[in-house]
């Protein structure tokens, strides 16, 4: 179980990813297979967290990779990392589904980032051995944010709420929400700098 989790976490090698995207652009189905193997777990995790239902989440996974296949020719490697592109598509498709379902997800995700961070932010070495270094680094970074900042970010991520909607939902002034998001993102950017440099 632990090994499976470890091997399923994406690795970020820029040269490798560039080659992968070039093969995708050449309509290489084997490349699509490799891409799926690399990112399906993350895409599915995002989809499940957002839509809260496995059947809907499965459709999101297929829609996401289908969109990647269709739009690979237009993908510009200078615009950002491949994982950024894929996860952005996954989140967008999942939020589309959520809106089409016209209901809140079955699983409560309001404070998902908070819950994840609190559950995993640990110095337990055994846990570190099976969580990837990257994943553990993100947990640690999230854990350093005040709860209010994580909450605002979680509502944006998993519910697709705008700044005004977050302010309304939390009953806080818009300026407060802006500040929380800015501070939260700045802190995460600082702490996750090494992840952004493949």
């Amino acid at each position: 179980m632990k090994d499976a989790n470890l091997s399923n976490l994406p690795q970020f090698d820029a040269a490798d990813e560039s080659q992968l995207i070039r093969r995708l652009q050449a309509r290489d189905q084997a490349a699509m297979n490799a891409l799926y193997e690399r990112y399906a777990n993350v895409v599915y995790a995002v989809a499940i967290r957002i839509v809260g239902q496995t059947a809907e989440a499965e459709d999101v996974v297929v829609d996401c990779f289908w969109q990647v296949w269709q739009q690979a020719a237009n993908y510009d490697t200078s615009r950002g990392q491949l994982r950024t592109w894929i996860v952005t598509i996954a989140r967008s498709r999942a939020l589309d589904r959520l809106r089409a379902m016209r209901r809140a997800p079955v699983v409560s995700v309001e404070d998902e980032l908070l819950r994840v961070a609190e559950a995993k932010a640990t110095d337990n070495p055994e846990q570190e051995t099976w969580l990837s270094q990257q994943s553990a680094q993100i947990h640690r970074a999230l854990a350093t944010l005040p709860r209010e900042q994580r909450q605002a970010l979680a509502l944006a991520y998993y519910r697709g709420l705008s700044q005004s909607e977050i302010a309304e939902q939390l009953g806080e002034p818009l300026g407060t929400i802006k500040t929380r998001i800015r501070l939260g993102m700045m802190k995460l950017r600082e702490q996750l700098q090494s992840l952004r440099t493949p």
Binding site: A4, N5, N8, L9, P10, Q29, M32, N33, Y36, A40, N41, V42, V43, Y44, A45, V46, I48, R49, A57, E58, V61, V62, F65, W66, W69, G80, Q81, R83, T84, W85, V87, T88, A90, R91, L113, V116, A117, K120, S132, Q134, S135, I138, H139, L142, L153, Y157, M185, L188, R189, L192, L195, R196
Partner: peptide, 30 residues
């Protein structure tokens, strides 16, 4: 950079293995 940070956050989620038939569904479509 901020977008990359944003896209990194789901890696904090425990990886969730999708059902095996999904890949076949996708590859059939392709």
């Amino acid at each position: 950079e901020l977008k990359d940070v944003w896209a990194t956050l789901p890696l904090a989620l425990p990886p969730t293995v999708p059902p095996s038939h999904l890949k076949a569904r996708l590859m059939d479509r392709i």
